[in-house]
Amino acid sequence: MRIIVLIKHVPDTWEERVLDPATGRLDRSASERVVDEITERALEAALALKDSDKSIEVVALTMGPGESTGAIKKALSMGADSGIHLVDDALAGADAMTTAATIAAALRDAGADLIIAGNESTDGRGGMLPAMLAEHLGLPALTFISDLVVEGGRVRGERATETATSVVSAALPAVVSITEGMPEPRFPSFKGIMGAKKKPVASHSLADLGLAADATPRAASVVLSCEPRPGRTGAEPIVDDGSAGQRLADYLAQQRLV
């Protein structure tokens, strides 16, 4: 079985993230980039399956600028067998439609039995790419699942929406997106870090994927404006001297909040 995990390099949520007001795009120089934690959990899910069945091959795929090889290296050192990097200058500032079309083109003939993604990126917060890929590829999508079992040619999981919690399943091949309910990722071992250097990484441009730069989707999302909002300044906190509960009640009443 071949599992392709979609990993994404994102600005570290521990730092202040900055948008370029002129373009509304991410200011890449402003913060450190890390592998989005949810995609490390997606990789963990694949590696856990591989732990119990060594014949499983795990491939880490990312679309992003040159520096995103760092994300693939991390995935290889955690235990992925190989990497695929989709990189092309024409992809700078790609919207969701272009991203989905590009990743779908790379997946189409990649022979994946299972494609595992995170449910939502911490930078874009769209949470739609997995469903879009499934539509492109004609595959079922088990999205936002908080556990994952592969058995008898099917994948199964639990999926909570705002209105119901369901058990959902699909025959392989399928696309899955996982939530934070899945286990935390493992750390790369020393052996993993050393071994990563020898693992193959394929790099593909749009032309390699058979996509001309102008063959990307016609409809596109365009940023019109981008403005920073003033940060908040807190008031000096009071130290409880035995009356803080009473004082807080008075404050809430005075603010007409109770």
Binding site: G126, A131, E135, T143, P217, A219
Partner: peptide
């Protein structure tokens, strides 16, 4: 912009050739 709404929106955009503005 709910769990189901996002699945429907994502697939729909690909199917009809639209584009997405989310959240």
């Amino acid at each position: 912009h709910s769990v189901d709404g996002r699945d429907v929106a994502g697939r729909l955009a690909v199917r009809v050739g639209g584009a997405l503005a989310w959240d």
